[in-house]
Simulated scan of single mutants.
Amino acid sequence: MKRLLKKLNKSGSNNSISSSIVIYYPERVSLGNFIYIGPNAEINGLGGVEIMNGVIIGPNLVLHSANHSFKDSKYIPYDETFDFRKVTIGENVWIGGNVIITPGSNIGEGCIVGAGCVVSGTIPPLSIVVGNPCRVIKSRDSEHYYRLKKENKIYLKEKLERKLQPQINLNYNE
């Protein structure tokens, strides 16, 4: 894992990356700080990938930043050329499990991407999206979000520095 992370274009600090992650073309992938990437992620960085600070990604992510060219191709169904389309994941995005991110996607700051989503295109900042294809169902409270950001209350940062523990209530009668 350490060898893979050293091959990245940029790798920030205090990241927690599962050992089962696969990154193709790691030299075209940039990671910010305080990032968590869960088990079994597959990232194809051919077209460029930027994951900014504070991002949390659940298990089984599939992310593509390039696709085979088919328009004016020399062969069918496609030829040996590629369409490179950078993927950007903004600060403090939370991505659920089993999400697919397609080439050229841009997920705005503070978004929440529901489990099983297929992301394509641009998602506005602070959006909460679900479905296939994903659609915005609501937005986060911007005043609350930006207050916490100004106070530097980033979960993975706080977890590391203050040794936060999950608070789990197992009393099912409530």
Rank of each mutant, 00 (worst) to 15 (best):
S120C: 06
C134N: 06
E158Y: 10
G48S: 07
E91K: 13
K157N: 04
L61F: 01
V129Y: 08
K163V: 00
E42N: 11
K10R: 08
N15I: 02
I89V: 11
E151P: 13
Y24R: 12
V129H: 09
S20T: 10
Y24N: 14
V49Y: 08
C134W: 10
E50T: 15
V49W: 05
K71W: 05
V55Y: 14
I57C: 15
E158S: 08
G104Y: 05
I57K: 13
R85S: 01
N9L: 13
M52I: 03
G108D: 02
I95P: 10
V118W: 05
K149S: 02
I56M: 15
S139Q: 11
V118M: 13
C117R: 11
V129K: 06
Y36H: 14
R135Y: 03
K6C: 00
G96H: 12
S105H: 03
S105E: 04
G32I: 02
K153M: 05
I89K: 14
N14H: 12
R162M: 06
N152H: 14
V55P: 12
Y155H: 13
N132Q: 09
I100V: 09
I89L: 10
N53P: 09
L61R: 10
Y36C: 04
V130E: 11
G48F: 03
I128V: 12
E161Y: 04
Q165H: 00
G121V: 05
I51K: 10
G45N: 13
G108V: 00
K157L: 09
G32M: 07
T122G: 00
V87R: 01
D79K: 14
T102R: 08
N33P: 05
I128E: 05
P39E: 12
N173R: 08
L46Q: 15
I35M: 12
P125G: 00
R147K: 12
I21T: 04
K138E: 00
I43M: 15
V113D: 03
S30Q: 11
N67Y: 00
V29C: 06
E80D: 10
H68W: 07
A41V: 12
S16I: 11
L31T: 09
I56L: 15
N169M: 08
H68Y: 00
N132V: 11
E151W: 13
E158K: 15
E143N: 11
K149G: 03
L156F: 10
P77K: 06
H64A: 07
L126H: 15
N60T: 01
I37D: 06
Y75W: 02
I51Y: 10
P59D: 10
S142Q: 14
V130C: 06
K6I: 00
Y146K: 13
S19G: 09
R135N: 04
K71H: 10
